[in-house]
C-alpha cells in the first residue's frame, strides 16, 4: 500500500477537533489494550493531534510531525513500524520463514505457506480482518504490518493463497517518511 508513497500523496492535513481526537484515542485504546499505559505519552492530550489525509482513503495520525498510526477508510488504526518496534507486544504476531522475507520487504502479501512452514509461526488467536505484526524467522523485530484475510485456523487449514495483506513494510514510503514537514 505504501510502496509508492511520498509527501506528494498528502492531500490535506488538519488539526482535528477534540471530539475527533477522543474518538481516535478511544479506538486505538480498544484495538491495542497493551498500549493503554503509554498512550498518554504517545498522544499527549495537550499537543495537537494532526490527521493527514492522503490519496486512496488513507489517513495518518501524526503528533509532532511524526506519523504514528494509519488507517484506511474507516478501518482499524494501525501503528507505524517505528512505533511497533518500540512496543512490539501490542499486536498479535505472525512469523514468516526466512525465504519470505525478501518478498515481504518488496511489498508482497503474505502467503499462507510462508506462515505454516517450519520457519513460520502463527498466533492462534489471530482472527480474520485484524491488524497483525509480521515477524521473521531469526529476527527480533517486525518487518511488516499486515491485515489478516483469514483467521489463523483457516490459514493452517487452507494453506494456500494470500493469508495476510501487507499494509506497511520496512523501507516502504511510509517508513522513509520519518517526519512529515
Amino acid at each position: 500500500m505504501f510502496k509508492k508513497f511520498s509527501s506528494e500523496d498528502v492531500s490535506s492535513q488538519n488539526q482535528v477537533k477534540a471530539s475527533v481526537q477522543r474518538k481516535i484515542r478511544q479506538s486505538i485504546a480498544d484495538e491495542y489494550p497493551g498500549l493503554e499505559p503509554v498512550l498518554d505519552d504517545l498522544l499527549p492530550k495537550k499537543s495537537p493531534l494532526i490527521v493527514v489525509k492522503c490519496q486512496n482513503h488513507l489517513n495518518l495520525v501524526m503528533v509532532n510531525n511524526v506519523p504514528l498510526f494509519f488507517n484506511v477508510r474507516d478501518g482499524p488504526y494501525m501503528p507505524t513500524l517505528r512505533l511497533l518496534h518500540q512496543y512490539p507486544d501490542i499486536m498479535k504476531k505472525l512469523q514468516v520463514d526466512r525465504g519470505a522475507i525478501k518478498f515481504v520487504l518488496s511489498g508482497a502479501n503474505i502467503m499462507c505457506p510462508g506462515l505454516t512452514s517450519p520457519g513460520g509461526a502463527l498466533d492462534d488467536d489471530a482472527l480474520a480482518e485484524t491488524p497483525v505484526a509480521i515477524m521473521a524467522e531469526g529476527k527480533k523485530h517486525a518487518l511488516a504490518i499486515g491485515f489478516t484475510k483469514m483467521s489463523a485456523k483457516d490459514i493452517r487449514a487452507i494453506n494456500k493463497g494470500i493469508g495476510v495483506d501487507n499494509m506497511h513494510y520496512l523501507n516502504d514510503g511510509l517508513w522513509k517518511m520519518e517526519r512529515l514537514e
Partner: peptide, 11 residues
C-alpha cells in the same frame, strides 16, 4: 499491566 512498558530501543 500496571507498569508502563518501556519502549524498546531498536538499532
Amino acid at each position: 499491566m500496571a507498569e508502563k512498558p518501556q519502549p524498546v530501543r531498536v538499532l
